[in-house]
Amino acid sequence: MRNIFVFIWRNHFVFLFLLLESLALSMLIQNNNHQRAGFINSANIVSGNILNIYNSITEYFFLKQTNEKLAAENAALKKYSVNSFFKYDLQVFNISDTVFRQQYTYRTAKVVNKSVNKRNNYLTLNRGKLQGIEKDMAVITPDGVAGIVKDVSENFSTVISMLHVNSKISAQIKGNNYFGSVVWNGNDDSYVDLTDIPSHVKLHKGDTVVTTSYSAIFPEGIVVGTIDEFNLEAGNNFYNIRIKPGVDFRNVSNVYVIGNLLKNEQINLEEETIND
């Protein structure tokens, strides 16, 4: 027994290294398996607050662009306001609440940390549990889809960006409703790929790709991007389609987090059907 202690003491450098290294690897693998960031991520209270302060300083440099973007979006929204429609009929329409029931809620959030040059990219938002953010909510910008909420702490949340190797978003081509999945190959942050579009569909460069109504996360019809390039390999039944995302991921600052009020109802019903 004594010899063992002597042996360990003599080689304490190697043993300490093995201990620390296995600790690091177990943290890494645990995180990969369960897809949760544990406590050491930027939703962490200390680093989250420091990044928040840093961001509140740097956001002044981008005030002009942000204002222009918000103004453009306001203009687009005003187009749909009641005041901008000409009333050509004197008939009165009543919008009855039993016909329209709110399904989606929108909350604003600011991006306090982001990356684009990794294999797995994340965004950190300055909204969390206390502001009503939950796991698996959709995150969009005025330009299109940004990602899906992954972890939530009291005041911060992390988002799996579309530029994440495991991100998979159901999308369709606007107009003909053939649908597939938007995935990222991990190399170039200015393009993503659309898979599973069958070869008989007619495609055009510049076609818009939007989200489908099949997932309980995204509302239907939110822009993902536009088709930049497509080709069909001989003998293949599906196109290779390259999409230019609507969002410039290097430059996201303000986002909307979308909650689906009917999500649990839909998921529970679907699970019941599968289990029977």
Partner: peptide, 29 residues
Amino acid sequence: WLLLVLSFIMGLCIDMFSNTVGMHIAACT
């Protein structure tokens, strides 16, 4: 031992800020 522990802490700090649990720790150690 101090070299290993300091590198471990350094990796931990960088991991905390960049959402990469364990990666920098493993590399630094």
